[in-house]
Simulated scan of single mutants.
Amino acid sequence: MNSSTARLIARPVVGVLPMALAIACAGVALAVPQPGVTEPPVQPGITKEAPADEGGRSDLTKFDGPDSLGHLETQPRPQSRPVPEYTTPAPPVVIEELHLPEPVEPVAPILPPERTLRVGDFTTPVPDEVPADLLDGVNTNAANVEAAIATQGRSVGINPSRSDKIAAATVGGALAGAAIAGIPAATVGAVGGGLAGAVVGAGIGFAVGAAGTAGATAILAGAASIPTAGAGAFPVIAAGAVAAFPIAAASTGAGAAIGAAAGAAAGAAVLGIPAAAAGAVAGGVLGSGYGATL
């Protein structure tokens, strides 16, 4: 296999690095050290001064060193920037130039246009009915994640414009993966949970509405006679239910509706959330590889 073919195959794999780094180094800001901010204070007799770096590169492999990832504290988030427009194609990932993470300037989060949802490279207009606070919250969180991934990409030697593309494709891919995997699973869970919840809720509603009626008394008497009467007790229970239903109809319907809503929400969450999480990871990995080659 020649060198150009090997690089073409390896680039999508390399594109996954920023996402992996973002997960492995979660909560750590790769920022340029500032005196008094990112450099630990030296106390005579307590803290030893770090030896000078001979190679000019921060030794991030030493977990207890002053230039390690653990000592790089979060700097103030830079101001937002508009959606970048590149006039030339982003340069490819150069495998030979990749290195261990180094401190770099934090990438500013991207500010989308007004009334626009932007999650990575996915954008769409948003109706005016959607509250601005909700839209801003989603856009801000997505932009911060994208900026963190772009920062991680630059820290390992990926070109800034290519790192931006990888970050945008990673976040957009995570959204697509979550939707593709999560929505069908949530739908299945909602239907099953809604049916089960409706049955349980109807039973509870009937019991609440029928409490104290003659029909309820007959139901309890029939249930108590099951050990002795066996199957002969069921007609008594059924007759009591028929007698009590007109009085308990309203509470039965309300209970069924409440139970269906609660069951649907629970079923959607039980099946939808894990599926969405798995889909987001898979979509993010695929998007990261796509961003490394587009």
Rank of each mutant, 00 (worst) to 15 (best):
E73C: 01
S68K: 06
K62A: 10
S68I: 04
E97F: 04
T88P: 02
P92W: 05
P66W: 12
V83E: 10
R81H: 02
Q75N: 12
G65E: 02
T61P: 05
L69H: 08
D67H: 13
Q79P: 04
E85N: 13
Q75Y: 11
P76C: 02
S80Y: 01
G70S: 09
P91A: 07
T74C: 09
D64R: 06
A90F: 10
V83C: 05
T74V: 04
P76Q: 05
E85D: 14
L60V: 14
K62S: 09
F63C: 00
I95N: 10
P82C: 05
F63P: 00
R81L: 02
P91K: 09
G70D: 03
D67W: 08
D64S: 14
T88Y: 06
E85L: 12
P76H: 08
L72H: 12
T74F: 15
P89V: 01
T61C: 09
D64W: 08
G70N: 12
D59R: 08
R77V: 06
E85R: 15
L69M: 12
P76A: 03
L72P: 00
T88D: 11
T88R: 12
V94K: 11
E85C: 00
L72M: 14
T74W: 15
Q75M: 13
P78V: 03
A90R: 10
I95T: 10
D64C: 02
V94A: 10
L72I: 10
Q75C: 03
T74A: 15
P82V: 03
R81N: 01
P78A: 02
V93E: 01
R77D: 08
D67Y: 12
P66T: 12
T87F: 10
P82A: 05
